[in-house]
Structure formats: structure tokens, C-alpha cells
Design a protein around this nucleic acid. Structure first.
Lengths: 197, 197
DNA sequence: CCTCAAGCGGACGGGGGTCTCCACTTAGCA
DNA sequence: TGCTAAGTGGAGACCCCCGTCCGCTTGAGG
């Protein structure tokens, strides 16, 4: 690949990340091209479809996500691990308007084996947190999805407000997860696949 | 107005409510017209813009909303009033995919005097609930908006799942509102106007 | 039954989105 | 420096949306 082409490709990715974070995935390809100082054709030569660009742009954050989960699984204090997963992923969602949408969209594509492994890990983490006595007994692993979808709703807010709101929402929820004593409505087997209809 | 015209108008409204509830406001006008068995022109003659149709279709639910708030303000038990407001409005949101969007969109248009009066009433309700000892002291009236926006995120789910999820989310949150003892991140002055940018 | 205004629906204009085609430019090597 | 393949950008094909125009249809009063 020629040097100028490589440079253009990199600039497109940077700009795409910026715009997706600011305005969400519905930002037009033409806007990305313009801000990157290239033509649309250049953009489409490097990324055959918009979806390709989105996935490439968010690959890094998906990896961060995976890392957060892995760290949590290794944490000797399962409650702290659980708390941290929720806090960090929700913060990612709140900071980046496109992240939630990209995450949902990519979900069916993610290699299902890795997905299942992560999920089973999380289920185990939940069980350990319950055994440790810090997590309410009627917490369901599906509540993670519930939190993610609800927190995703905040991404329609302006960035700073979204972050502050998310922090407060998560704090409320974690407190409920920890100290719960009342009877809750039953958990919902809430897979992210459902979001797509 | 001729009899057939009146009938068509009514059928359009019914169909519009159905489709908005199922698929959200982004359902095309042509789809509504088709399902109502009329042409687009007919639809536009009765409702000059899509926004008009949306407002007309949701007018009833807005009235319900206002009624819920009024009832809550009259409830002698302020904590029950507060709980009920949150539960009922969140249920409305979860049942109807278009409701949240219509509510947000209509917000700037609603006669601001009525809006402010309702808001001040809610602030008073919050204070009374705190005084009664059932609501945590650091609850902010802005947290109502936080709950609405977060719960609105669930409307991307299929209807039945959304309702069950919303119920559980609200239960978690209400429990936190009631029994709170920990220090929360500061409340965010979160007006619905912010959603629009 | 006849009339005609009210009502109707499909074709169309305008705008904005994704993605393609093609004539021109330029990096990089001999 | 000259050649060439890789790279480029803008015009435009195609699609979907909102909203309008206009010739045809029909309800309902005399």
C-alpha cells in the first residue's frame, strides 16, 4: 500500500471515531470523507461498506470491553469485579454515542464461541458475587443486558451530561444490586439479539 | 366533513397509533396510508405534516400522563404518589415504542406554563416524600428525567420484553430511591430539552 | 336522477442517504 | 526524468423519505 494511501486510511479512521462518538452512527459517509479531506470514493475503497468502517473504528473499544470483562473475572473480589464491569462499560457507552449502536450491531457477528465463553464467565462471576454475600440473591446475569440497554438510552444526551447521568444511574443501580432485600419482578432472559427484532 | 372522510380520518389515527407503537415514529407516512387503505394525499389533507399526525395520535396518552401526575400530586402518601408516577409513565414508555420520541419532540411545544406548573408540582411532591422519610434525601427531581431517558432506552426491545424489562428496571431504581444510604454522584440538572441538542 | 364540491389516490418534485464509475493525478522505481 | 499502477475525487445511479399536484370518483342535497 502506498504511503499516502496508508496515511489517508489512518486519518479516515480517526475522523470516523470522532464523528461516531459525537453524533452517532447516522453520520453520513460524505461528512466523514469531507472532514478527513478525502473523497467518498477513497473512503469506500478502503472500507467497502459503512458497516466495515464502523466495525474497524470500534474494534479497539470492543477489545477494551473484552479486557474489562477478563480483568473482572480475574479479580479475587467478585463483587468489585462485577461493579467494575458495569461501571466501565457504562462509561464507554456514555462517552461514545456510536458505541452502543456499534456494539449491538456487531453482536450477531462476534464469533459466537468467544461470546458464549465471556457470557459463561460472567454468569460464574455473578454466582461468586452472590456467594460472597455482596450481591443480592435474585440478581440475574440478564440484568447486565438490562443495565446496558437502559444506560444506552442516555447516549441521546449531550456528551458531558450523558457521562454524569450515566454515573448517577449506575450508582443507583449498583446500590440496589448490593443491598436488595425486597422482592423484584422476575428477571427477563434478555439477550442483545432481541434489540434487533 | 363528509361521512366517508370522517371514517377515513378515524381509521388513519387508529392505524397510526398501532404502527407508531410497534415500530416507532420512523414508520413512513406511506406505510400508514397503505395499512389504512387510503392514499398518501388523503392522509396529508387531514394532517398537514407528519408531526401533526404524531401529536394527534399521542394526544390521548399525553392527557393520561398529565392525569397520572395530577393524581400523584393529590395522593396523601407522597412516596406512593412518586412511585406511581414513575411506574405508570415508564409502563407507557415500554408499551409504546413511539411514545418516548413523541413525548420528547412535543416537549418544547407544550404550553410552557402548564409544563412549569407540573414540574413545580413534582418538585413539591419530591420534597414531601423526603419529609415523610420514605425517599432518600439526596434524590433530585432531575432524577425523574434520568429514569425516563434510561427507561426510554428499553423501547428498542420487542414489546413484551420491553414491558418486563422496564418493570424490573423500575423496581431496582425505586428500591434504590427508597432505601438509599450511600453517597451518590451529584444529580444532573437534566432537562428533556437537552435530548434535542 | 343529476349535479358538483368534497374527497380521493397515484405520480411526481426535492432532499438526503449509500455506494459506483471513470477520467485525472501522483508516488515510487529504474 | 519517464513510466505505470496505485490512488484519487466528484458526478451520478439508485433508493427511501416527506410533502404536493392534478385529473378522476363519489356522497348527498335538490
Amino acid at each position: 500500500m502506498r504511503a499516502d494511501a496508508r496515511e489517508n486510511r489512518a486519518r479516515v479512521l480517526v475522523v470516523a471515531r470522532e464523528l461516531f462518538a459525537e453524533r452517532g452512527l447516522e453520520v453520513p459517509m460524505a461528512a466523514i470523507a469531507r472532514r478527513a479531506g478525502v473523497g467518498v470514493a477513497t473512503l469506500y475503497r478502503r472500507f467497502p461498506t459503512k458497516e466495515t468502517l464502523v466495525m474497524e473504528a470500534f474494534a479497539e473499544q470492543f477489545a477494551v470491553c473484552q479486557g474489562v470483562m477478563d480483568d473482572a473475572l480475574k479479580d479475587p473480589d467478585p463483587w468489585r469485579g462485577l461493579r467494575t464491569v458495569i461501571e466501565k462499560v457504562c462509561l464507554l457507552q456514555a462517552c461514545d454515542r456510536g458505541f452502543t449502536a456499534a456494539f449491538m450491531a456487531s453482536f450477531p457477528d462476534l464469533h459466537s464461541e468467544a461470546r458464549d465463553r465471556t457470557w459463561l464467565g460472567f454468569v460464574a462471576l455473578v454466582q461468586r458475587a452472590k456467594d460472597s454475600g455482596h450481591l443480592r440473591a435474585d440478581f440475574s446475569p440478564h440484568d447486565l443486558t438490562l443495565v446496558l440497554v437502559a444506560n444506552g438510552g442516555l447516549s441521546s444526551l449531550p456528551a458531558e451530561v450523558a457521562v454524569a447521568s450515566s454515573r448517577r444511574l449506575v450508582a443507583y443501580l449498583l446500590e440496589s444490586f448490593r443491598t436488595g432485600t425486597d422482592v423484584l419482578p422476575p428477571p427477563v432472559p434478555l439477550s442483545l439479539d432481541l434489540v434487533l427484532g
